[in-house]
Amino acid sequence: MHLPEDPETPLQINIVPMIDVVFAVLAFFIVSSLFLTRNEGLPVTLPTAETAEAQAQRQVVVTINAAGEVFVGDKAVAEDQLLEAIQTLGTVADGGLVVIRADQSVNYGRVVGVMDRLRLLPGVQLAIATAGSQP
């Protein structure tokens, strides 16, 4: 008995599904890498410290730029309005952390003045950001 021969179809490699998977993985890594960077929005040159530690709890960032201007987050505030601006955020109540990001060229007295005003908040904890403490 003679069986008819099947015509051999040439083998083909379909790369479209592979391209889809590669682009999906690439998109995942691009999106996830955006969450790894920390952008405070205000350019300051932080001093360096060898013993700096990263803080994991919820925090409010107070920035003092090279011109001596005070910002809560990315919003400029007058020094006499600093406490009200932080209290409206509501994250400092009962032991909240306020991180002070002061440019290294800012006068030491200016930083101490801001710290002194922040200590009027009940239960506040203060931290000073350095170049080594940025995650």
Rank of each mutant, 00 (worst) to 15 (best):
Y108W: 09
D103K: 01
A131V: 07
Q104K: 15
L126C: 04
R101L: 06
V92P: 00
F71L: 15
E69A: 14
D74I: 09
F71V: 02
P122E: 10
Q81S: 14
I86C: 02
V77F: 07
T91P: 00
G95F: 09
R119C: 03
Q81K: 11
T130H: 03
M115G: 06
A131M: 11
R117S: 12
R117D: 12
G123A: 13
A93L: 12
G96K: 08
R101P: 02
D116Q: 14
T91L: 14
A131I: 01
E79C: 00
G95V: 09
G95C: 12
Q81P: 00
I128L: 15
G113W: 03
Q87Y: 02
A76I: 08
L97G: 06
G68L: 12
V106K: 05
A102R: 06
V124T: 05
L97E: 09
Y108P: 05
V92G: 01
E84V: 06
L89W: 00
L97I: 13
I86S: 06
V114Q: 04
V124F: 04
A85H: 03
E79A: 11
V92I: 15
V92K: 00
D116S: 13
V106I: 14
D94T: 12
A129M: 10
Q81I: 04
D74G: 11
V72G: 08
V112A: 15
L82T: 07
M115C: 03
V99K: 06
D74S: 14
A131C: 02
R117K: 12
V98N: 03
D103T: 00
D94Q: 14
G90I: 07
A127Q: 07
F71W: 10
V112T: 12
Y108E: 15
V99A: 09
I128F: 10
K75D: 15
M115L: 10
V70N: 05
I128Y: 07
D74H: 05
K75F: 05
R117M: 12
E69Q: 13
P122W: 11
